[in-house]
Computed example of a mutant assay.
Amino acid sequence: MNWLTRVRNSLPFQSKRETNDNLWVKCPNCQEMLFAKEYEENQQVCMRCDHHGRIGADERLKQLLDIGFDMLEQPEVQEDPLKFKDSKKYTERLKQARAKNPHRDAFSVGSGQIEGRDAVVGVQDFGFMGGSMGMAVGTAFCAGAERALTRKCAYIVVTAAGGARMQEGILSLMQMPKATVMTRRLHEAGLPYIVVLTDPTTGGVTASYAMLGDIHIAEPGALIGFAGQRVIQDTIREQLPEGFQRAEYLRKHGMVDMVVHRHELRDTLANLLDFLQGEPKGEKAA
């Protein structure tokens, strides 16, 4: 052992890997190294290129809802009804996903207020099996809609998904009409249903509740679509335009109502609730 090794081992240095993981994050867009604390304080938006990073359900709910909101208990559904197995058993994939996530599945619901306006907010977490829509997601979505109907307030859903969960087969696809029925019930009750589209929102989620809102808001640069760009190009035999399926392109062509920066999303939602439901009354409004 040489003198350099002895000195290095005697000092309380962290390993390079541990230091990078704890202190720095790399922006997936511009590849710049960002100080993790500053990145988190900036709501996980890159300070250099303004790329909107993906965030979990708990963080999203904290950003949107006032302090003191309630979390709805995630409904229990039959797991692995098809006894599905690919390279791994479906039960093993669920176990691995839950070990990395504080929630049992990809859809979480918070009930509270946004700057004093009553609202129920459902959040889809791409970090849980790509936010895929299975029975648990569909049931949780409907539970959130039921809470909004009970409270007679707006239902806001933040989407992020790769599509239906293939391990549940036709049962995952049945969540599309089930969720569609709940959006219809909200409409009949005269309650606002607002969708916030984040990166990525694709597949069966886009084909159902993600595009049935009264108002559609998208985060900048979010990928939004049903099938992938390469699949569409191979089908229609044409080259698609630059930025196809991105939030700004869809806003320009009328599929999204507005593109809103994450820092402005909370205020934008509060203003929309004022417009759709009327201003809050009482002490909280004052």
Rank of each mutant, 00 (worst) to 15 (best):
I170K: 13
S111W: 08
Q175L: 03
L94W: 06
K37F: 04
T206Q: 08
R6W: 08
R98M: 13
M176P: 08
A99H: 05
D80L: 07
T5I: 15
A140C: 10
R60E: 03
Y39R: 07
A106M: 01
D86I: 07
R246C: 00
F126D: 10
T19K: 12
M129S: 08
A160P: 04
A136Q: 11
T183S: 13
A106E: 01
A160N: 08
L223W: 02
L65S: 03
L186R: 05
V158D: 07
G221E: 10
Q113K: 12
T5R: 15
G134H: 01
L272E: 04
H216F: 02
E146W: 08
Q277H: 15
V45H: 05
C49T: 01
G53M: 05
R17C: 01
D70I: 09
R54S: 11
E248Y: 02
L72D: 04
M176N: 07
A210C: 01
P75K: 03
E248G: 00
Q14A: 12
A161C: 14
K88G: 00
T206R: 00
G282T: 09
S108P: 04
A285M: 12
A270K: 00
K100G: 09
M182K: 12
G122P: 02
E73A: 11
K100S: 11
K252L: 10
A119E: 09
V196F: 12
R17T: 10
E18P: 10
L186H: 04
S111L: 00
Q167M: 08
I55D: 02
D50L: 09
K178Y: 14
A161G: 03
E18D: 14
H261E: 04
E79S: 08
A36H: 10
F35H: 10
G203W: 01
C46G: 02
S87I: 06
T235C: 02
W24G: 02
V157S: 14
Q245N: 11
Y209R: 06
A227L: 05
Q245P: 04
E168T: 09
H187A: 15
I114M: 12
C30K: 15
K252W: 01
K95H: 15
T235E: 06
R237L: 09
M47G: 00
T235V: 09
Q167W: 00
I232K: 06
I156Q: 06
Q167G: 07
Y90K: 03
R8D: 08
L82T: 12
E79R: 14
L240K: 01
A247S: 04
A97Q: 04
A97G: 05
V137I: 13
V25N: 12
Q14F: 08
G162Q: 03
M211G: 03
L94T: 01
Q96S: 13
F141S: 05
L212V: 11
L61N: 05
V123D: 08
Q113N: 11
R147G: 02
M1K: 14
A210Y: 02
